[in-house]
């Protein structure tokens, strides 16, 4: 079973996306801020992380940097989720160490394709 860690502060969107992913057969664990996201990455050892970028406590970029700095976790692919569709957002996310990038609202088929391709690579 593929386990995905979803880091998202908005309760409604966290619930929505987890439901959609579970329906597609993934096991989904959730964190509500960047700090919790880093902690759960270590404790849950997910196969892939979906990381919202505008998070409280520790934002998505910093959380990504911490995960990617950790030798035990850096192999986990991270897809950045952001509400902005600016080219600079993508560059910032990739610079922080994200392996992929999706804008909200999510196009699910596109996201699933990206998840699968990153899992194949990992």
């Amino acid at each position: 079973m593929t386990k995905i860690l979803l880091v998202e502060d908005n309760e409604m969107n966290r619930d929505m996306l987890s439901r959609r992913l579970q329906r597609k057969g993934y096991v989904v664990v959730m964190a509500v801020d960047g700090g919790e996201g880093v902690a759960m990455a270590a404790s849950e050892q997910p196969d892939l992380i979906l990381m919202d970028m505008s998070l409280p406590v520790l934002n998505g970029w910093d959380a990504t940097r911490q995960i990617k700095a950790c030798p035990a976790l850096k192999h986990i692919p991270i897809i950045a989720l952001t509400a902005h569709a600016m080219a600079s957002d993508r560059e910032q996310a990739l610079a922080a160490g994200c392996d992929g990038y999706e804008t909200k609202p999510i196009e699910l088929p596109q996201l699933l394709e990206k998840i699968e391709s990153l899992l194949r690579r990992a």
Partner: peptide
């Protein structure tokens, strides 16, 4: 304006996600 746009889009992201999910089911 950017902040406002982000905030206003949040319920839309949920509506689209739930809408597509419900449509599937």
């Amino acid at each position: 304006c950017s902040r406002l746009r982000h905030d206003l889009r949040t319920p839309l992201v949920a509506l689209k996600g739930y809408g597509e999910l419900v449509l599937e089911i």
